[in-house]
């Protein structure tokens, strides 16, 4: 019970930080511009299903990528800022052990990203023109998978922030967020090491959903969940290894 209360405080702190940073508002502005254009087109009467599907896809893509970007930036800032500002000492003196602090930060970043995703998703969903023949099952899969994806982004960013200097870690995480899948598609056949690249874009189900494709089979879904869960475990183990024994 005590542990949950400690995590609660960490989550609260991260949420306050999320609201105080400009990034959320900038991303909200981007999404707002999309929503305005989308509503304008809707008012004009977008009759062709191809164009309507394109708009919805754009909205869902933006909702996904912007929330992932926000989650990554939030997670990347956590430990380096705490260590640099020396605020980590009072945190650890609560007493709060390092493992719980790390888990708390991870959950907080994932939750922050998820809340933003829900907001952006609703904006995209209600502003975009109606698209016929979409699969309800696929929508469910998309929505259920999103928290897992954001948890992966958050864990990965936390681990990288502990392993690399601040600037390099930002470039690495944001680069992989946007280009990880492209790297994989481009070179995995030639260089098998690229099978181990984190494919954040590869598990994005928004395009599959807006393309009107039915839900994935149970087997495929399971493989995807296992893949992401293993990545989360890997990142958390990596972050723990770097943080728990780190000299502060």
């Amino acid at each position: 019970m005590k542990k949950f209360s400690q995590w609660g405080w960490i989550i609260r702190g991260v949420m306050i930080e999320l609201l105080r940073r400009q990034m959320l508002w900038i991303l909200l502005l981007v999404m707002g511009i999309y929503a305005l254009i989308s509503m304008g087109l809707r008012q004009q009467g977008m009759e062709s299903p191809g164009a309507a599907s394109f708009m919805l896809n754009l909205g869902l893509y933006l909702a996904g990528i912007l929330s992932q970007l926000l989650t990554a930036c939030l997670a990347l800032r956590q430990f380096p800022s705490e260590i640099e500002n020396r605020t980590i000492y009072p945190l650890l003196a609560k007493p709060l052990d390092r493992m719980n602090l790390m888990l708390g930060k991870w959950m907080a970043c994932s939750l922050g990203g998820l809340m933003v995703y829900i907001l952006f998703f609703l904006l995209a969903w209600f502003c975009a023109p109606a698209v016929p023949n979409l699969s309800g099952g696929m929508l469910l899969q998309l929505l259920l998978f999103q928290p897992l994806l954001l948890a992966w982004v958050s864990a990965f960013a936390l681990a990288v922030s502990l392993a690399l200097p601040r600037g390099v870690s930002h470039v690495t995480v944001v680069g992989l967020l946007f280009c990880g899948e492209a790297f994989y598609q481009w070179g995995a056949a030639k260089w098998p090491l690229l099978y181990g690249v984190p494919r954040f874009g590869g598990v994005d189900l928004a395009t599959r959903f807006t393309d009107g494709i039915p839900a994935m089979s149970l087997g495929d879904t399971l493989w995807m969940w296992i893949y992401v869960i293993l990545w989360i475990l890997l990142c958390l183990t990596w972050a723990r290894g770097l943080f728990v024994r780190r000299m502060l």
């Binding site: 191809g50 099978y195 181990g196 590869g202 395009t207 599959r208 995807m224 893949y227």
Partner: peptide, 24 residues
Amino acid sequence: LWCLVALLSAKVQPRTYTGGTSQR
């Protein structure tokens, strides 16, 4: 874990489908 995710990576292909609105 990294070896496992690398092995699983080829199994994860939610985008490999034929057709779809955007392809028409």
